[in-house]
Design a protein around this nucleic acid. Structure first.
Lengths: 207, 207
DNA sequence: CTATTGTTTGACCAAATGGTCAGAAGCACG
DNA sequence: CGTGCTTCTGACCATTTGGTCAAACAATAG
């Protein structure tokens, strides 16, 4: 039976365990060093495998990175998908913002992986941005625009409203070191940010 | 006469011109590829010099990068320095936000260079963050806090207010590709952002 | 037990890359 | 001109790094 893990979905328990380890190690390294900064040796060591063994599970460095980004795109957009056209506008926007902030808090490595990719011009997920991402954002921006036209939210450009939520929430994951350096010890940046963003958007969106 | 450009300030016209070229090329490459992603060959070619010639002007890749960051830190904080304790609170905050956004628009490469550095844990400018940067932010946060206590601005955490301005303005430089991909053609992201941020902060800061 | 399939490794390779160096070419000035 | 300094280059080097491969080592089904 042919069971090349490099080209097929995991079959055995060992495959599943090791591919997981590799992906987790790779996330750690890629998010901290960027694609070119990361080395297979680093990833292999962190995963507890030899380099050739690692390459038994994934055909190339590129493939690992690609897999990570593909997996990420799914969950990354979940908070926005949950925005409910039938809900209360203010609750929906604030809820989205909170979910996004919580995601930054819980998944900073993923946020940085994404940030690295975009910073470098999105060479690997450019198409997904103009496709999947744009479609979803356009759709939800439409919903928000509807709320604004109905006078249920203060009017503003819905696309940029969404961008502002991305910027604010991801900042606390991507620029974590800077935030902590400036605040000094004894702070909980995410908690404090939550409070500020809440009042910020509440006031801004009130008609 | 000893004139090693690698260890001294530029003396001749040629040195000045070539060091400039190198730094400009390096900014281009470092900001687009990150430190490890950039190669001396790329920088040299873009600068119109041979690699050994480039290394005649700078002792190492690290040195070029360091020089860029050092130069940047200066100008990067200018907009905040200009925040005037004697001015009108709302005008000052909005003015700061606009200067910062304009800087993102005019200097996206610098913004990305900085973002890359922070993303990777600020291995090279960490100290400056806890020193120079923290001092300036603490000072200006104090000014803002004073305005709020005097009832001239709606109360909120001044540090996080500043963070929010960083996040929002830099986002348009650092995530430029994503913003443009989602908006599609026929947009001027920075102009549109300017409008939104203006109303956002105006409402949020009004008592 | 054994044959087959799945897993792991040591040794190895080619390309890329940061950096060196001896000397050639350019340039200014007495 | 020729002397001394600056600028530049081709050739070279050591290391790092992504990736290969044949063969050894499990594991497991029959």
């Amino acid at each position: 039976m042919e069971g090349d893990p490099a080209t097929a979905a995991p079959r055995t328990r060992i495959q599943q365990r090791n591919m997981r380890r590799v992906l987790d190690a790779a996330l750690e390294v890629f998010s901290a060093q960027g694609f070119r900064g990361a080395t297979l040796d680093q990833i292999a060591e962190l995963a507890g495998l030899s380099k050739p063994n690692l390459l038994y599970y994934f055909p190339s460095k590129e493939a690992i990175h690609h897999q990570l980004l593909a997996d990420l795109m799914d969950t990354w957009l979940d908070p926005l998908r949950e925005l409910d056209p039938a809900g209360d506008p203010m609750d929906e926007i604030l809820g989205y913002m909170r979910r996004k902030l919580e995601m930054s808090r819980a998944m900073p490595r993923e946020s940085r992986l994404f940030a690295n990719e975009i910073l470098q011009g999105a060479p690997r997920i450019g198409p997904a941005l103009e496709g999947e991402l744009k479609r979803l954002v356009d759709e939800k921006a439409g919903v928000i625009a509807g709320w604004m036209e109905a006078g249920r939210l203060a009017p503003m450009d819905p696309h940029h409203l969404i961008f502002s939520i991305w910027a604010l929430t991801q900042h606390y994951a991507d620029f974590d070191v800077q935030v902590r350096a400036v605040l000094g010890p004894g702070h909980d940046p995410f908690a404090e940010a939550g409070g500020l963003l809440d009042t910020l958007y509440r006031k801004a969106l009130t008609t």
